[in-house]
Design a protein around this nucleic acid. Structure first.
Length: 565
RNA sequence: CGGGGUAUAGCUCAGUCUGGUAGAGCGUUGCGUUUGGGACGCAAAAGUCGGGGGUUCGAAUCCCUCUGCCCCGACCA
């Protein structure tokens, strides 16, 4: 590509509301332009990168035996009512009407459509297993789109759905997809981790997320330094403490804490450590409120809490009015002592093994010290309620956990039979009997990968693409102030040579001054830069600089080819 | 959905408090001088000051209202 024939549109200034590096750099490089909240146009430059990712994803899906197809993005309401998700999906589902007032949604995902396809197309167990995929635009009406294409409303996704008779076949394809994902992210040149994940509302049993490691990531992941254990923090279990609870030594005492509400304030005021305090959260249970007790230095894990039998499948904090009505005290002064007998008290495993602790008094301005379980406060049940923290023992007993930030770019699920049952997707088995199929689903956020890669690989000057994602591998820059035809010819010859060798090259023939040209090539992250100028012309040498290097060096054309081959 | 902010040239923003000729930088166009890390000079084009309503002799500025966008929170594949 000759840059003079391309539309490169870099900018120096960028809106102040672009908060993270990838969003800023994609705007500055001119890869994307915002059309509306969460909606972005991909410029010619941005599209080149997007297509690189898409191509690798497609190649590896095909290699893994998946079959590409394409489903409509607009989907009829009736199909979504069959699975109950017309209501359940909530506000994220963009609902639209046609001229006849028929209702549709813009597809946020395609379980319904593919299962409908499968129930019509698949009749016999002999057709299984089969794995269909597409690469297509999705729309999810996010409450708060942010970070550019990282969390956009419209985005490009690869979604695959496999169909099986039996859990074993599903597990086999799941393993194949897992390996395909490892290949994809390895080929893309990204630092990533596959982590155990919560299956969430979708259900099913087994699930892994593929997380690109980056400080700006919205997810926290826990991984062991002594084994290959890795899990999303939503999922990561804590190990039950091995120590017994010490015997009580202190009497229960009321203390006045007129303004101290938070654990930090209480601990500071009473000169105790946060881990000697109990924090009590009241959440809405199936019947009335439920008390959840944690050690003061620990945080509630909403996903774990939502799974408690006493809760209705979600963990929602009680309102201040509800709390006052049942305890008589305002939030900040709640504790496990003297709670109504009807209220279940569920205690985290680590909170259950401390003695002589500090907790709220269920009276405004009052806390207790010297509080002890059983003697002063009831335990209905002990459970794992908290997030793991840095330094916790790994749940597999090997090593300690560390916490890192990640960007979720892929997610694989064993869905089981939920959708196939709802849509009555059956095939006949070898006995001629109809059987409900099992399903797996496998997603990759193609457009999000572009942002995640930048988040992981950039510096002050701009993007540092992995070679596999770069819009071009090599930039040939011409410095030719005197318009010497020999320089242009040399640059053109080099450009042609590289192209003929299958090396994607961009020729910067815009005639810019060197500073502007170099700044642009660094901003858009081209991995290799070659300068053709008067300096090396007679000697037949070139100036070469890799994107991540700080200095350029003089090399011959053959040396350049050796670097690029 | 709750709270906060913001909307002025293609972009980034002043100007609004205290009403009186629409501004700067960057970018764009033309001419000239330049040419190895985002050059300089001269000239030029470019605005329904988010929309609607009101107050006023006069509104970017004050009041009402609607909308878009951003941030924090809650919520959530």
């Amino acid at each position: 590509m000759r840059l003079s024939q391309f539309h490169l549109a870099t900018v120096k200034q960028v809106p102040a509301d672009a908060e993270i590096a990838s969003h800023r750099l994609m705007l500055r490089a001119g890869m994307i332009r915002k059309l509306a909240s969460g909606l972005y146009t991909w410029s010619p430059l941005g599209l080149r990168v997007l297509r690189k990712v898409e191509t690798i994803v497609r190649e590896e899906m095909n290699r893994a035996g998946a079959i590409e197809m394409l489903m409509p993005s607009v989907q009829p309401k009736e199909l979504w009512e069959e699975t109950g998700r017309w209501q359940k999906f909530g506000g994220q589902l963009l609902k639209i009407k046609d001229r006849k007032q028929q209702e549709f949604c813009y597809g946020p995902t395609h379980e319904e459509v593919i299962t409908d396809f499968a129930r019509n197309e698949l009749k016999s167990y002999r057709q299984l297993p089969v794995n269909f995929y597409q690469i297509q635009t999705k729309f999810r009406d996010e409450i708060r789109p942010r970070f550019g294409v990282m969390r956009a409303r419209e985005f490009l996704m690869k979604d695959a759905y496999s169909f099986h008779l039996g859990a074993e076949s599903l597990a086999d394809t799941y393993a194949v997809m897992y390996q395909a994902y490892v290949r994809i992210f390895t080929r893309l040149g990204l630092a990533f981790r596959a982590v155990q994940a919560d299956t969430g509302a979708i259900g099913g049993n087994t699930s892994h997320e593929f997380q690109v490691l980056a400080d700006a990531g919205e997810d926290a992941i826990a991984f062991s330094d002594g084994s290959d254990y890795a899990a999303n923090i939503e999922k990561a279990e804590t190990l039950a403490p091995t120590a017994e609870r010490p015997a009580a030594t202190a009497p229960l005492q009321r203390v006045d804490t007129p303004t101290q509400k938070s654990i930090a304030e209480i601990a500071g005021f009473l000169q105790v450590l946060p881990q000697q305090c109990i924090k009590t959260l009241l959440v809405r249970g199936r019947e009335g409120l439920v008390a959840l007790c944690l050690r003061g230095d620990h945080e509630i894990n909403q996903v774990k809490a939502a799974k408690l039998a006493e809760l209705p499948g979600e963990s929602v904090l009680a309102s201040e009015e509800e709390i006052v009505a049942i305890t008589g005290a305002r939030p900040g002064f709640i504790g496990p002592v003297n709670l109504p007998d009807s209220l279940p008290v569920i205690v985290d495993r680590d909170a259950a093994v401390i003695a002589d602790f500090v907790c709220g008094g269920n009276l405004d301005g009052i806390h207790y010290t010297g509080c002890n379980w059983e003697r002063d406060a009831r335990i209905t049940r002990i459970a794992d309620l908290r997030n793991v923290v840095e330094g916790d023992p790994s749940p597999d007993g090997k090593g300690l956990l560390h916490i890192a930030r990640g960007i979720e770019v892929g997610h694989v699920f064993q869905l089981g039979q939920a959708y196939a049952k709802a849509l009555n997707a059956t095939v006949v088995d070898d006995q001629g009997k109809p059987q409900v199929m099992s399903m797996g689903c496998y997603g990759i956020g193609v457009s999000r990968i572009v942002a995640a890669a930048i988040e992981q690989r950039h510096d002050d000057a701009g993007i540092i693409w992995p070679e596999a994602m770069a819009p071009w591998r090599v930039a040939v820059c011409i410095i030719n102030p005197k318009q010497d035809p020999a320089i242009h010819e040399a640059a053109e010859a080099l450009y042609q040579l590289l192209q003929q060798r299958g090396i994607e090259t961009v020729l910067d023939d815009r005639g810019l001054r060197p500073g502007g040209m170099f700044a642009d090539m660094e901003l858009i992250g081209i991995p290799h830069r070659v300068v053709v100028s008067e300096r090396g012309l007679s000697a037949g040498t070139l100036e070469y600089r890799a994107r991540q290097d700080s200095e350029s060096r003089v090399i011959t054309q053959n040396e350049l080819l050796a670097i690029l081959d």
